[in-house]
């Protein structure tokens, strides 16, 4: 995210840049972006969320340097040691350093979130806008399919897909994505139906714009804001679902340091060794909360009418 990085120099130049008239489409867009960033930065909670997410990315990127131990190195003589200066978050039942496993686990979490988002977002957006724009038969068929998906509780459906696909990280991602796109498609469709009847779409049609051009040039840019907000808010539940699958042993397989799986494994030792579940549990909570706050802040910027 360049928001934080560019804040220093951008802020000094901003007054002058924002107050003068744009001289190109790019400049006009940049001005708009800066105003948005400014609004976002004035929301304390959202900035806190963004900071945690940036921190998570940094931790994932620099995991080898941050980890104090090898996350998968077993040392039974060190098993179930409470937090200390050597093992900051203690050790687990195989004597692995929990702090290092949390650090490496951030990679798994980010991997899942990113993969789910980049599959669910575009698919949901395109299916929803096309179905909403054309209406009629296309719309009917697509919407009955989404109904089918939405009729089941998300986690149950995900479990079914995992059961079919078999346990594993990639399978978990695929299952979460399969259950995630209908909600986005519904949202995009609802927005498209309102936009479709607006005068600016009528004007675009009168200019001879093809349906493809109208969908990609006029409708998707308007839908994009709310879809991005929805996806960001959804990331928290993606993390929780992934952790849930990990907890049930259907997600990442041992010895991958996945937070949900770590919580599950620690459950047996919870009464004597509380740190086994606490550390990954807190990590899941903090990160999903961060995505939620970030999403709320984004909504204020991208979608001011829903405030």
């Amino acid at each position: 995210m360049s928001a934080q990085a560019s804040q220093g120099p951008a802020k000094r130049k901003k007054v002058a840049f924002l107050d003068r008239e744009a001289t190109s489409v790019t400049e006009a867009f940049l001005q708009r972006l800066l105003v948005g960033i400014h609004t976002f930065l004035s929301n304390g909670l959202a900035v806190a969320g963004l900071t945690i997410i940036l921190l998570l990315i940094a931790v994932a990127a620099f995991a080898p340097w941050m980890a104090t131990h090898d996350p998968n190195l077993q040392n039974l003589s060190m098993a179930l040691k409470p937090p200390s200066s050597a093992n900051w978050f203690g050790t687990d039942e195989y004597g692995r350093d929990i702090f290092s496993r949390i650090v490496y686990g951030s990679r798994v979490t980010l991997y899942i979130v990113t993969l789910v988002t980049i599959t669910v977002g575009p698919i949901g957006l395109i299916v929803g806008t096309v179905s909403g724009y054309f209406g009629g038969m296309v719309d009917m068929i697509v919407m009955r399919i989404t109904d089918l998906f939405l009729a089941f509780p998300g986690l149950i459906l995900t479990l079914t897909f995992v059961a079919i696909l078999g346990p594993g990280l990639e399978q978990a991602v695929l299952a979460i994505a399969l259950t995630g796109w209908p909600a986005i498609a519904r949202l995009a469709r609802a927005e498209t139906m309102t936009i479709r009847s607006s005068d600016y779409i009528a004007a675009a049609r009168l200019q001879g714009a093809s349906s493809l051009r109208i969908i990609f040039g006029s409708i998707i840019p308007v839908c994009l804001s709310s879809v991005i907000v929805r996806l960001t808010l959804g990331m928290a539940s993606v993390i929780l679902t992934a952790a849930g699958l990990g907890f049930l042993g259907l997600g990442a397989q041992p010895p991958t340091p996945e937070w949900g799986a770590m919580t599950s494994a620690g459950r047996e030792y919870m009464l004597d060794s509380w740190w086994l579940v606490t550390a990954p549990g807190v990590a899941i909570m903090v990160v999903s909360l961060a995505f939620n706050l970030f999403g709320d802040g984004l909504r204020d910027v991208l979608d001011p009418k829903s405030k």
Partner: peptide, 30 residues
């Protein structure tokens, strides 16, 4: 041959397009 001007100037312009983008689109299409 035929073009139209709509009643509500707030609803007939695309909210995310600049004047330039709005005016360039028909030229590109044709």
């Amino acid at each position: 041959k035929i073009q139209m001007v709509f009643q509500d100037p707030y609803g007939s312009l695309h909210p995310k397009h600049t004047v330039q983008t709005t005016l360039a689109a028909p030229l590109r299409i044709h």
